[in-house]
Amino acid sequence: MINIDTITRLHELLGYDKPIHPLITLIDINNIQFSSKYENRQMVVGFYTISLKDGHNCKFKYGRQYYDFSEGSMMFTAPGQVGTVEHTPSDAKGWMLCFHPDLIRKSQLNSKIKEYTFFSYDSSEALHLSEQEEETINNIVNTIKEEINENSDIYSDELIVSNLEVLLNYARRFYGRQFITRNSANKDVISRFETFLTDYFQSKDLVDNGLPTVKYLAGKMGYSTNYLSDVLKKETGKNTQEHIHFQLIEKAKSLLLSTEESVAQVAYTLGFEYPGHFSKLFKKKTGMSPSEYRR
């Protein structure tokens, strides 16, 4: 396991000179001189990365689903994620923008960074850009590059962070477009998800294993937790957790009206360790306690 916790360390591994700015850098993928001894080695990166790779020249695997656009593919990773470096073809094109959390620590972006859920998507859930979208992204990145290369002053970091936020806002907009253009594929995802969740609540898995977690369901569907929740939210208005609660309440209503089991026993049947937690959730979702609903 290789730990890359600073921008300087990253430059060393990639065969780059010492970085101009200690907290942010823009790497030209075509200029990477990565030692073969590091290939297929797992590594943990201590900073955020935003990368754009040319889909025509760079053989990176993104392929769990079809491509909407092939002009370019963007990928985002957050600090602490584990990745594996694979062989980079000699004709690879693109860039990788890396910034340390300390760069945004004192800014408003620090409190908003969790809202950009695509930092936790899998590589197969990359953002595929149209030609116009790619031009927009590259223009912002070039502005950031100019600020990095300029002589630093009291405004430099503030301008860099401001442009980073603009870049992330455009990425969020373009992901929204991608969710729409993948409408038919997304409907298939939703159909499979709802079928799987319904079957789970009807099976003995509920009693044996308890309530399914968001992570468990995303894994069964073959997606990252954030990507699945974002697709569901876009198409149905409810995220993964809200879908779980909906199925739970529907199952609870059926048990309360079709059996004479106590409220506590219903709670245990639904996978709750503490009946009070079930009653609290039921009242929050329906406006009534389980006993009131039964009456």
Rank of each mutant, 00 (worst) to 15 (best):
L97G: 08
H56A: 12
N169F: 09
T269M: 10
L248R: 00
L255K: 12
L197I: 05
I190G: 01
D54R: 02
V263N: 13
R64T: 02
Q178G: 04
Y293R: 00
Y268C: 01
R177N: 14
Y293F: 12
L103A: 11
H245F: 07
P19G: 04
S120H: 14
N110T: 11
E131V: 10
D54I: 02
T269N: 13
A126K: 12
R294T: 06
D102R: 07
N30R: 15
N3S: 14
T143I: 11
T25D: 15
V44S: 14
T25F: 03
G46N: 07
I140D: 08
K145R: 10
L10E: 09
V85A: 14
E135V: 05
E235G: 02
K253F: 00
N186M: 04
Q178T: 05
K59S: 10
E146V: 08
Y16D: 09
N139H: 09
L13I: 14
R177V: 08
I180K: 15
K112A: 13
M74L: 15
Y223V: 06
T198S: 15
T259P: 03
E242P: 01
D68V: 13
Q202C: 05
S254I: 06
M75S: 14
Q81R: 04
R295H: 13
T259K: 08
N40V: 02
L211E: 08
H11M: 04
F119A: 08
E134L: 15
G55W: 00
M74P: 06
F60A: 13
P22S: 10
V266A: 06
